[in-house]
Structure formats: C-alpha cells, structure tokens
Write a protein that binds this DNA or RNA. Structure first.
Lengths: 158, 158
DNA sequence: TATTGTTATACTCTATAACTATA
DNA sequence: TATAGTTATAGAGTATAACAATA
C-alpha cells in the first residue's frame, strides 16, 4: 500500500514512472479499441465476430464450439450467440462430428477467408497511420518492447 | 489494397512490420482491457464508472452532465445511467446549478476520492507487475514511444 | 455421472428518439 | 427555437442456470 499524493487524487498520476506508464498503456489500449471498432463496422463484423473468425483461422485443426469457448475465454453460451450470427452471414458452417454426436465442428467458408483478408488489410493500414509518428527503427524498438510485455498467443483472446 | 499472402489468411500476420505491430498493439490493448476490468471489479466500479470518476477528478471546475458527456464522447443518456449508479453508491452528488435550472452539476464525494486513490494504487501495482519484464531504461524508452503514439488527453476517453 | 450445446433469462454499456422543463 | 436532462426502447456482449442429447 503505497503513498499517493494530491496530484494523483486529482487525476494526474504524478511522476511515478510506473503510474505514468500505466496511464499511457491504458490510453493506448482505449485508442486502439475504438479504432478497431470503427474499422470493423464497415466489414459487417462485431469485435467478437472478428475474434472468433481469427481464432478459427489460426487453428491448425477444426474446432468444436467448446474449443472456441476455451480459447476465447468465454462460456459456451457466448459462442453459440456469435456462431449463430456468423452462420446467418454464411461466414461459418456447422458440421456434425463423425465420432461424437454431441459435438459440432465449426468451419470457415471461403467468404470468411476473404473477409479476414479485408480485415487484416484494413488493420494494417490503420496501424500504418498511427505508426507514421515513429521512424522505422523506433517501430522496431516498440515491437521489441511490446513482444516482451504481452503474453504469448497461447490463447486467442484477440 | 496491398498484397496479402497465405500466412495472413491463416491468421499469422506474416513479416510485414506494420502488420506485426498492429497485432502486438491489439493484443496489448486487449490484455490491458481485461486486466483493468479484473482490477476494478473488487472496487465495485465498472470501467465506465471509473472513467467518469476520473473525468470529474481531472476537471478544475465542476462539470454538468452535458460536460461529462462531451469529455467522455458519449451521449447524455449514457451519462444519466452511470451517474445514477454512482449516486446510488454515494460516490457523486447532483447539485442544482444556481443560474440555470436546467443544469445539474456533479460533485465527487470524499468516498469517491478515496475510491479513486485505491483504483490508482491498484493500477500502478498491476502495471508494475506487467512492466517488471522491462529494465528501467527500457520502461523509459517505452514511455517515450507511447507518448508520441497516443493522442493527448484533450478528451477523457479513458 | 460427465460433457456438448442449447434455451431462458438477466445485467452492463451504449445508442436513438421522444418528452419535459427551462432558457 | 435551442438546451439540459430524463424516460422509453433497443441491440451487442457477456454471464448464470436449467435442460436435452449423448457419452
């Protein structure tokens, strides 16, 4: 339980370097969150739908709904909702599992692959605009720092 | 409309540096978003409530609901909801404006200042854990880079 | 008895639109 | 006529709980 001075009470984080970085990281996160929503809207994808598509695309093997839930750290109920929406847009197909009749495998359609391509293009362009503020060697620096900061993609939260 | 190779279709962003950074930034943003929710829950604050408190704390002068809406980039309706919740928890007080009987000024209670203090402490501790992966001079580097990347706090989106 | 996916229900956050009181 | 704030309503995203089918 550390000391917190008046500057902090007033919403200014003071000069404590970690607090300043906490604020900067949070602000960056929020800016990116908004940018990404703005970006996905014209593609007809909600953030949850986009993450689900990426989760499926990243997987080497077909995933059941319960696998998707686990990788995205949501409950199965949530997966059902998103998958229903994606199926209505013909971006995924439900396929019965041959061995276990309880399971449903989810497959990406060609349309989904195309949509993913557009999404990644749009994101790269948006990131390019944001990153224009930095020189190429600084971008490289940032990459190195972030790679050590964020957890590995063991899960597919994003 | 750039070229996108198979690696990208499969969810791997390939080696294009900007795409890699786009992915890293998005992943960082998401990690921070989740961490911050986890952090606010035990304090009884939703992210929206926390941002509202910070917006009020940062302001030099009392704010009307419409001022809060503008600074947080939300519609007045949204402010009403959050302010209702904060009032129920006795974290803010509505005060009638002396000049204009349409306006309502929102004031933080002492309890809110205490809550904010706890929140900033928790966030600093959490950031400290995350940033432990970096040496102090690297933290300083990261700070410099992020400061040039994210927009200034003209608004209080966070 | 445990697992897979669904239905039913609810809560948070946000939005649009219509309304009231006031300016 | 314009502004401040509210009520009414809706939709996305997520959760818990109960349930049916299957293992």
């Amino acid at each position: 339980m550390g000391h917190v001075d008046q500057a902090q009470l007033d919403g200014n984080d003071g000069e404590d370097p970690v607090s300043v970085l906490a604020e900067l990281l949070a602000r960056t996160a929020r800016a990116i969150h908004f940018e990404s929503r703005r970006l996905l809207a014209p593609l007809g994808l909600t953030p949850a739908a986009a993450r689900t598509l990426r989760t499926l695309a990243r997987s080497e093997e077909p995933l059941r709904m319960v696998d998707i839930a686990e990788r995205m750290h949501v409950v199965p109920r949530t997966v059902t909702t998103v998958i229903d929406a994606l199926e209505a847009e013909q971006l995924i197909e439900r396929r019965a599992a041959p061995n276990d009749r309880r399971s449903t495998y989810v497959h990406l359609t060609p349309l989904a692959h195309e949509r993913l391509r557009l999404m990644l293009e749009a994101r790269r362009d948006a990131a390019g605009q944001l990153l224009a503020a930095l020189e190429p060697d600084e971008q490289e620096q940032l990459r190195g720092l972030l790679e050590r900061l964020v957890p590995p993609v063991d899960d597919c939260r994003r």
